[in-house]
Write a protein that binds this DNA or RNA. Structure first.
Length: 821
DNA sequence: GGTGCATCCTTACC
DNA sequence: ACAGGTAAGGATGCACC
């Protein structure tokens, strides 16, 4: 039988000591298919330079005798092949060692201690990664699979009868799709879920309700307060019954993906814990297996055949940089992206809840799943594109960090270069790498504080990646010693040399940048979420590639390449700044890859010609583009000293759109009062070109503050708790607030935003932390603190640009007021 | 007990 | 531990007088 197949979920299993892979996906009619495929694992032994054919042949014979016996199985070297490969760009002779079971790859590698062997590789790759790379069965890409249909077969111990799929096939041939189906849209069946429990600690309380939302499904399952008027609420006799019903609903819905928000860390482990407590099987997998949890910073809950995605984790790595939200909670993220937030609901112990409150609780629970479902629909194109581009399964894509994405992209493209993969650094190596000295980073121009008019901003497209590509900076091109025709880069007092022979990392990156360019054009022609997601995925990959080479956990770690990248970037941008200044323009600011300049007497058109001229002189794939023209811009001095502050400015373009960077307005650890005021002040000044009406606003705000007319929510300060309370060496206000919360029995976790305000105290207290109060504590806000530590600092430097001393204004007002009496 | 610098800490920019 | 360095700025810690 032959079918078209789109792979979604991958898993490996052993049968009679050998490795097999089972892949769950859909055929073109939407039927669920499970493909079983054998996998012949292997690793590499690279030979020392100059090893003779004869010695290599002798070695093969010795290697073929290696046998690993464990209580579980016996792993043999099944066969070996002598191959010509590349490693870090250099040709090597390597023996490909096929083994019975990949789980024993490490012990086999340990047995390869022959003098002819230089290094052993590829025993530390994930087996699924290796399978995908080997068989080219790329996630979310249609392929043709032919093979034998398993129907209550005894093969693999009757595995097919345990799997709830429409079709189970033992693969014989897998080919890339060449017909029209390759472009066929695939819409996954999504099921969102969310639970509510009395206690936040996993498994401590009972699960009160579970909501489920699919395309045509809206349900809240509960065993509390029944019967109920709400038609979507379904009641069960106890928690165990509800849990069983949950499993049955998932099975009936038959989704491709089960999606939650924080579900890796909360919902799924909670369900598991309560199922155990109630002695109910949580057989969510399509083979009735229970979710398994892979260890890690956050455990990852895997369900066989249904891709479990914790949407929070994907948003955190792939999308948080685009969000304005100050936290990545469901409410804020959904409000920003969907224009719809969570239901308001005041949590209290379920024992004290009245009938109407239960109704609100059910509505609240359902809404969480509704939002999760909608967000999943929104992010589906992004997960799809990342999965296709990086060639890793959705489960991994939804959880991998950007460095892992870059690394997986590399690994899945190594075959184009006949490269053997470098090993992952071990613990000791990581420790060593982390101790290395920092290298110098980007150049930041020292600005002059002023209000400027008529500006242009240029910036380099993918600046650092374009330098890596243009100058061939990578681990394989890095030279230990000077060679002729090599590129020499000065790194402080040292020098680094790079070969000019194009290396695979820059070549892959070049392709990523080119594809990004191509898909960006495509997006401009046809704006839709899919074209955007594709272009964006390439952009993020390119941007993360620079950091990857300097990251201590990277297989292709090369801090010299990172240092060279930034060194070249500094020289380059300084040179460009010099050229611009020669032309009676004036560069007023620059940070890393961007340049802000005053047009002076030049027209916009002339600035565009200048840009063209600059571009014609750029090497390789480097490219400078216009970011925008601006009507005005303001730079302020640092709080200490007369110099202009870096990374702090505000611009207004000709469509009156504001761009604010670094100011307190955009900092979440300042109170709303100060942030809003500063934002309005910047707005007025940039819009009007002078400070007059802005000054009036400040005076009014100060008056309101002194008369205690400020709303309490506007003076709350929010600061993130980055570690546990005990770990803090300096006891800052937010640590005190966290301590107070703990004493009250409120949950305090690492990563939480701690909210507090500074209150008046009876006795004079020196430290701010002695005046900290929690939002619901009684007490008046401290006028002096909010004036001197929030409002004035937020606007002081802005008015300094106009030679106005805002402190005097604040005091003057008071004097005037005194005079009125 | 105040001053001033160092250090810790968070958050931003690119 | 889960991309990098650069930078601002608040609050506390601590030596010093």
């Amino acid at each position: 039988m032959e079918i078209s197949f789109i792979p979604l979920d991958y898993d490996s299993f052993d049968w009679q000591g050998r490795n097999y892979v089972k892949i769950v996906g859909r055929d073109e009619k939407g039927k669920r298919v499970c493909i079983i495929d054998c996998f012949q694992p292997y690793l590499w032994a690279m030979l020392k330079e100059g090893t003779s054919e004869k010695k290599a042949e002798d070695l093969r014979k010795k290697i073929e005798k290696i046998k690993i016996e464990t209580s579980l199985r016996t792993t043999n070297v099944e066969k070996t092949e002598l191959c010509e490969k590349n490693f870090l760009g250099k040709p090597v002779k390597a023996i490909k060692i096929f083994i019975t079971n990949y789980k024993d790859a490490h012990p086999v590698a340990d047995n390869l201690d022959f003098p002819e062997i230089e290094a052993r590789r590829e025993y530390d790759l994930n087996i699924i990664t290796k399978y995908i790379a080997e068989k080219r069965m790329v996630p979310l890409k249609w392929c043709r699979v032919s093979g034998e249909v398993l129907n209550n077969s005894s093969e693999f111990g009757g595995i097919d009868s345990a799997i709830d799929a429409d079709l189970c096939i033992k693969a014989e041939k897998i080919e890339e799709c060449k017909d029209e189906i390759i472009d066929k849209r695939f819409e996954p069946k999504i099921l969102a879920f969310d639970i509510e429990a009395d206690e936040l600690e996993i498994g401590k309380g009972e699960i009160l309700m579970i909501s489920l939302v699919g395309k045509n499904l809206k349900k809240v399952l509960t065993w509390k307060k029944c019967p109920h008027r709400l038609n979507y609420v379904e009641c069960f006799k106890d928690e165990a019954d509800m849990l069983e019903a949950f499993v049955n609903y998932v099975k009936k819905e038959n989704p491709d993906m089960l999606i939650g928000y924080f579900s890796d860390g909360f919902d799924l482990p909670y369900l598991k814990a309560r199922a155990e407590k109630n002695k109910v099987r949580l057989s969510l997998g399509i083979d009735n297996s229970q979710p398994s949890f892979a260890r890690g910073r956050i455990p990852s809950g895997k369900i066989f055949g249904i891709v479990h995605v914790d949407l929070f984790r994907f948003i955190e790595t792939a999308y948080s940089q685009y969000l304005q939200s100050e936290t990545l909670g469901l409410n804020e993220v959904a409000s920003e992206l969907l224009g719809e937030g969570k239901r308001e609901f005041e949590h209290k112990s379920s024992k004290q809840m009245k009938q109407e409150e239960w109704q609100e609780y059910f509505e609240y629970n359902l809404q969480d799943s509704v939002l999760t479902y909608k967000l999943a629909e929104k992010f589906w194109p992004d997960m799809l594109e990342f999965s296709k581009i990086v060639q890793e399964p959705l489960f991994e894509i939804a959880r991998d960090s950007m460095s892992q994405m870059v690394e997986n992209y590399i690994i899945h493209n190594l075959h184009k270069f006949s490269e053997i993969a470098e090993k992952r650094p071990l613990h000791d190596e990581i420790e060593k790498r982390r101790e290395r000295e920092k290298y110098e980073g980007a150049f930041v121009f020292q600005p002059q504080a002023a209000l400027y008019e008529n500006l242009a901003v240029f910036d380099f497209t993918s600046y650092w990646p374009s330098i890596i590509v243009t100058y061939n900076l990578s681990l394989s091109s890095f030279l230990k010693n000077r060679e002729k025709d090599a590129l020499e880069v000065s790194l402080g007092s040292k020098k680094a040399y790079f070969s000019k022979k194009p290396a695979f990392f820059p070549l892959m990156l070049k392709e990523v940048i080119e594809l990004r360019k191509k898909y960006k054009q495509e997006y401009k022609k046809d704006k839709n979420p899919l074209t955007f997601a594709r272009s964006n995925a390439y952009k993020l990959l390119a941007n993360a590639s620079y950091g990857y080479q300097g990251f201590f956990g990277a297989r292709y770690y090369c801090p010299e390449a990172s240092a060279a990248t930034t060194a070249i970037s500094r020289d380059f941008i300084k040179k460009i700044i010099g050229t611009i200044n020669q032309d009676s323009y004036e560069v007023i600011y620059s940070d890393t890859d961007s340049i802000a300049l005053k047009l002076n007497r030049h027209a916009k058109q002339e600035a565009l010609s200048l840009l063209e001229k600059l571009n014609s002189g750029l090497p390789g794939i480097m490219e400078l583009e216009l970011e925008d023209f601006y009507k005005r811009g303001i730079w302020v001095t640092k709080r200490t000293g007369e110099f202009g502050a870096k990374k702090k400015y505000a611009l207004i373009n000709h469509e009156s759109k504001l761009k604010i960077r670094g100011f307190e307005t955009v900092r979440r650890d300042w109170c709303t009062l100060a942030r809003d005021l500063q934002n309005k002040v910047l707005h007025k000044i940039l819009q009007e070109g002078n400070e007059k009406s802005a000054l009036e606003l400040v005076k009014k705000t100060i008056k309101d503050l002194k008369e205690r007319n400020i709303d309490k929510k506007d003076i709350m300060i929010r600061t993130q708790l980055k570690k546990s309370i005990a770990e803090y060496r300096a006891i800052t206000p937010h640590v005190i607030a966290a301590q107070k919360m703990k004493e009250k029995g409120l949950p305090v976790d690492i990563g939480m935003l701690i909210e507090y305000f500074i209150a008046e105290t009876r006795e004079k207290k020196a430290l701010v932390r002695e005046k900290v109060k929690l939002p619901d504590e009684k007490g008046e806000y401290n006028i002096k603190y909010y004036l001197e530590h929030q409002i004035i600092p937020a606007v002081e430097n802005i008015f300094n640009v106009f030679n106005i001393n805002i402190k005097e204004v604040a005091d003057g007002k008071q004097q005037k007021k005194l005079g009125e009496f």
